[in-house]
């Protein structure tokens, strides 16, 4: 019989319930804020400075993102927690670099999507939200986008969970779809908190739509629908290239990758009874 002093106890169900509650609350905060902003926008768009919408967008999205972090972070295994700072560095370095160029993309989610593919949607969402919060140490303007970044991470994880990374050509498609959703959700932040975009290239696109008579939110949403899907398609493709370049032992050390057969190729280990993978 093993002594309890060297082994871990079984996980308690109460902790899992608490986690679910916080996750749902976080998701509700984000969704509620978005709905409120979209419903109220016509009255508020030229409402002048210090608009209540800016405050609602800021606080609602931020509270939602923080609830998600509080829910997910303690439940992640240490191997994932240790990867998050690495992902954040990749996000920040690439995002800062690309943001300073005249390209209407961001490429600031490569690390987030990488974690999502290796460790699942919950880890991806936490990484996205943390990325915005930590990055705001150098660039506070990304702080309000925490909820959008969390959504990207979550969607990327779901795409991986349902096998969209098993075939190489599906990854950019999944990225494109993720970009549409992410862009639509992030647009109110840009519109209400900043009144525009943070880059010159994206600003030019918004300006073009505005001159055609769109409202600010509509113009920024359209701009996001031009930039974000392409951006996320590129990001997902880059991540697919990276994860397929990892050796098997490194890939399969992640339980999420093993359990859900995230990547093509012969999958070892438990639950591999139905090995009908096309490749190999």
């Amino acid at each position: 019989m093993s002594s309890p002093s060297l082994t871990l106890p079984s996980p308690a169900p109460a902790a899992a319930r608490r986690r679910w509650l916080l996750e749902i609350l976080g998701a509700l905060a984000i969704a509620g804020t978005y709905v409120f902003l979209v419903l109220n926008q016509p009255a508020d768009i030229t409402g002048g400075p210090g608009s209540a919408s800016a405050l609602i967008a800021l606080s609602g999205f931020l509270v939602g993102a923080i609830l998600l972090i509080i829910a997910v972070l303690p439940s992640l295994p240490a191997s994932t927690v240790v990867l998050i700072p690495v992902a954040l560095v990749l996000n920040i370095v690439l995002g800062q670099f690309v943001g300073s160029t005249l390209v209407p993309f961001y490429l600031d989610a490569i690390g987030t999507v990488l974690i999502a593919v290796l460790a699942g949607p919950a880890a991806g969402a936490a990484t996205g939200a943390l990325s915005s919060i930590v990055w705001s140490f150098f660039n506070p303007t990304v702080l309000p986008f925490a909820a959008g970044a969390a959504l990207i991470g979550c969607l990327a994880g779901l795409a991986a969970r349902y096998g969209l990374f098993r075939r190489f050509y599906l990854a950019p498609v999944a990225g494109f779809a993720t970009g549409i959703i992410g862009g639509v959700v992030s647009a109110p932040v840009a519109a209400f908190v900043f009144g525009g975009t943070s880059g010159v290239a994206t600003g030019a696109i918004v300006s073009a739509f505005r001159s055609m008579g769109d409202t600010l939110l509509a113009a920024i949403t359209k701009q996001a629908l031009i930039s974000d899907p392409m951006d996320k398609a590129i990001v997902f493709t880059v991540v697919a290239v990276l994860v397929y370049a990892l050796p098997r032992r490194t890939r399969f050390q992640f339980p999420f990758v093993r359990r859900h057969r995230v990547l093509a190729g012969k999958t070892p280990g438990e639950g591999a009874g139905q090995d009908s993978t096309p490749a190999s």
Binding site: T141, G195, G196, T197, S198, G199, V200, G203, A204, V206
Partner: peptide, 10 residues
């Protein structure tokens, strides 16, 4: 970039 973008948009 943010200020330039705002000036361009509005």
């Amino acid at each position: 970039p943010l200020t330039l973008s705002l000036l361009m948009v509005h």
